[in-house]
Design a protein around this nucleic acid. Structure first.
Lengths: 143, 143
DNA sequence: TTATTATTGATAACAAATATCAATATCAAG
DNA sequence: CTTGATATTGATATTTGTTATCAATAATAA
């Protein structure tokens, strides 16, 4: 079961934007937060369709976009793979170690690196807004 | 004019692989290293076509891939934009500050960050191979 | 010079993301 | 609770960027 706060953020966003809540939206929200992290539209669609064969691909896609807009998801494109979506709620920003063999994502965080990044930006007269750090390599299980 | 070393790397790679050199390949190599950095296939194609209307899109695309293979180019995908190619020769690895307003790329490097990344990987029993750091924000001209 | 075969250029095929649209569902207002 | 306006859905078409196909051509070694 997912935290009520998540549902509230979602419902409030919908209300504020003058959108409407639907059975499908709730379903997609639930499924997305229970599913594996870094999921593709295709996989999420399949998992929802298993319980509700009526669901449409476009609906899942559209609502993942909506989740990104309201800050509950992050879109990530890795190389030539299809777009993945990562649920986001409360948790701190993190970077990724990505295994070149098995494709596994490991979430990591290093405050020193973050600070140095800000310094690096400042040095270039650049106002940092967000960043993305991906380290590609071989994970411990694939060594 | 581009350094002879670049041409030699290219020609040697072609020879070693049992490929053949062509007028188009030389043209694309020249154009790529004279063009703006982080160029798309489309733009490079257009700029070559201006001088040589006979050139084909597929040829440009194929040979950018070839340049990546021989280490003279890097492919980069930013968000939902089309793939960009960055000429690479001699220069050290670098990261990018990317302006959210004008789209400008600023190349930066920080040795401390690189070292901390290696440490971070090691901490997770992960062998780093390469990485990508992109800081998105507002550049000094767009403030 | 010739034979072999890699390359080219035009275009088809492909895959993922996005747009279209008639049918349906939501929800505010009465 | 009903109703009307209109947002959403689901199926599918379209678009977009990338990659594959293939006959004609061109590069290289013998």
């Amino acid at each position: 079961m997912l935290p009520n706060d998540v549902k509230n953020i979602f419902r409030n966003y919908i209300r504020e934007k003058g959108l409407r809540n639907t059975r499908q939206r709730e379903e997609i929200l639930d499924a997305f937060f229970s599913a594996e992290k870094h999921i593709t539209v295709e996989k999420l669609f399949a998992s929802i369709k298993a319980k509700n064969p009526g669901i449409g691909y476009a609906t899942v896609h559209r609502n993942l976009t909506l989740l990104c807009e309201c800050g509950l998801a992050d879109e990530m494109k890795i190389g030539r793979q299809k777009t993945r979506y990562e649920p986001k709620f409360g948790q701190k920003h993190h970077d990724h170690l990505i295994c070149l063999k098995c494709g596994r994502f490991i979430e990591v965080n290093d405050n020193k690196i973050e600070k140095l990044q800000d310094k690096l930006a400042e040095l270039n007269d650049f106002i940092p807004v967000r960043h993305k750090l991906e380290i590609y390599g071989i994970c411990k299980d694939c060594k």
